[in-house]
Write a protein that binds this DNA or RNA. Structure first.
Lengths: 114, 114
DNA sequence: ACTCTATTTGGCATATTTGCCAAATTACCA
DNA sequence: TGGTAATTTGGCAAATATGCCAAATAGAGT
């Protein structure tokens, strides 16, 4: 069976994308794209239990999306790669497409018809 | 508690990203970024049960990522928005960053927060 | 040492997701 | 009309993910 290499790649990609696949985690990434924040600050913004937020952050860190930095008592998280937000804006294109059914992103691929 | 608007957005984003958060589905999207394929063709490439593949495709369609087109007996799926692959390539940057811990996505475009 | 505050971890009950089988559906063709 | 290939759907058991509580850990200041 071919495609073995592509399948491995897909697995690695899935691991990262899964880490983003949660409303709270996306929200936090969005916030962190503007400024670094501590767990407490994120917890307030999110409005969930601290332990829950901590686990979300841990997941995002393990996936290579965030890094943490100790600052005395606190831990600040920040985006490793700002391109994540570009990525997410691309998702927004899909959302628009869903709503308007006209077309969404950059180029029509020549396969509309509907 | 503010951020209500951003949270709604995060929810919409999560719906789309969740649809991508599976190795098989990413693999299929990758294949479809090169050419449209039928369910049978995708099933062969993926190596899972047809019903499983069909359900994956249905999910991707419902999320606005794919559209289907009937062709006689068959159904061909294709990417609605090619930008999805950019998104995925950005994910690759994160994967590299994970492996090399050096730096990854030295941005091709004007980025750096926004 | 004791006390806060901040963060992480363990445990667990409750959702959600996944993937296979079998059965239903749809379209083509003889 | 019957037969066959292509696709979807229903159902269900097994695997994962989620979120809260309680308990553990870490740092700063007294």
């Amino acid at each position: 069976m071919s495609h073995e290499k592509e399948k491995k790649l897909a697995q690695a990609r899935a691991k990262v994308i899964k880490a983003l696949a949660h409303p709270t985690r996306i929200f936090m990434v969005d916030l962190l794209s503007r400024e670094d924040l501590s767990v407490t600050e994120l917890t307030e913004a999110v409005g969930a239990d601290v332990s829950t937020v901590s686990k979300h952050l841990s997941l995002l860190k393990q996936s290579g999306i965030l890094i943490d930095r100790k600052d005395g008592n606190r831990v600040h998280y920040s985006l490793v790669c700002p391109c994540i937000m570009e990525f997410i804006h691309c998702i927004d294109d899909v959302i628009y497409g869903e709503a308007e059914r006209g077309m969404s992103c950059l180029l029509p691929k020549g396969s509309e018809a509907r």
